[in-house]
Amino acid sequence: MVRKEGGDHIRSWRFMVMLLLILFTFLGAMYVSLSNIRRVVTDFNDPDHVFVYLKLLTTSDNSLPTFYIFISFLGPLLGIALGFDAINSEKNNGTLVRLLAQPVYRDNLLLAKFYAALTIVGVLFLSLVLLMIGAGLLITGVPMEAAELFRILAFVVLSVIYVGFWLSLSIALSVLFKHAATSALTAIGIWLFFTVFYQLIVNMVVRTVLPDPASLAPEQVVIYNNIILSWFRLAPSQLYTDAATTLLMPSVRSLGPLTMEQMAGAIPAPLSFRESLMVVWPQVTGLVAATVVCFAGAYYFFMRREIRT
């Protein structure tokens, strides 16, 4: 079942379109990074200048965003494209009844659709990263350090989890709605809300409810900023961006505002991979929990749904 679902995805036009779109954005981001790599690795004021391969994923000249910014924007579209008609298209075509008439459990069908799409996403991101490593090795001739490899692999896993959230959400919507167009528009609407409107709404509510930060003491300003960040991190894209930034930039020591007392005595040196992983662990846990909740909802409604009518 997994091979069949994976083959259907690979042969579909929508996957081809998303593959070309992600590939073109990747090549554009890598071209910009490789064009500016000499400048960034010789900037000794940057504590991350020694991490050449991480710079390939984070360097930009403001003409194009970096690759992980592209993934935060295109990843949801990839997940939605692979899952918005996972169940309702089978039912509308009349194949769902015939498929479940075989000795196939409902949960195996749902798991196969999720696992096949997630496997394709993982292979896609891993291939792009290996392509980036190969291009960097050919152009710079600098061997990769183990810490860079671990961070890049962790970034790949994080990206797969992020796309997996939108995939599980779109599968849940395909269970709830009868028509594929309805589930697709609902998923895209949720994505647009969190991408475009959510931060605007939070800023408006915070400015209305909380006092002006210019009239607050320094300790209260820190609390004010923490409240805003806590609300921002309810958006999956914010969780992904925070975690990706910390993993790909070892000099990032905190994802929130720091007081002068906390900064006193701090050595401006990159964090180890384990320390960076501890910093982003709440963000990763939040994405995994959101993915599990969406998939559990799809599982619950699909197991209780009547499919013979």
Rank of each mutant, 00 (worst) to 15 (best):
P282I: 01
S89Q: 02
F73P: 05
T119Y: 07
F67K: 03
S89F: 02
L77P: 01
S33F: 10
L239R: 13
T259G: 07
D43E: 13
R304T: 12
K91M: 08
P65L: 09
N203P: 07
G136T: 09
S251E: 01
T59E: 14
F70C: 08
L100A: 00
E90L: 09
T58L: 08
G164H: 04
A290W: 04
A172P: 05
L110T: 03
F155P: 05
L111F: 14
V292L: 10
A180R: 09
V293R: 09
M303S: 12
W166P: 06
A244R: 02
E145Y: 12
V202M: 07
L131R: 03
R233G: 09
I22Y: 07
Y299R: 15
F194S: 05
Y300L: 06
D48F: 11
F67E: 10
L118C: 09
I161E: 11
L271E: 13
G141N: 03
A81V: 06
S230K: 13
V284E: 02
G136M: 05
L167F: 06
F177Y: 14
F295L: 07
D43F: 15
T309W: 15
I201P: 01
D107M: 14
E219I: 13
N225L: 12
D43C: 09
L248W: 03
A296G: 13
P257W: 12
F193R: 08
Y162D: 05
L200R: 13
D107L: 10
G94V: 01
P103M: 04
V209Q: 02
R3Q: 00
M303Q: 09
R14S: 07
V279Q: 04
N92F: 08
M249S: 15
R38A: 15
N36P: 08
L99V: 00
T259H: 01
I307A: 04
S183D: 03
M249R: 14
L100D: 00
V156T: 00
L210S: 08
V288E: 07
L271Q: 14
F67D: 03
V121D: 01
L128A: 01
A112I: 01
Y53Q: 13
T259A: 08
H49W: 12
P211N: 05
P250F: 04
I228L: 08
R39P: 05
N88P: 01
R274A: 15
R3N: 00
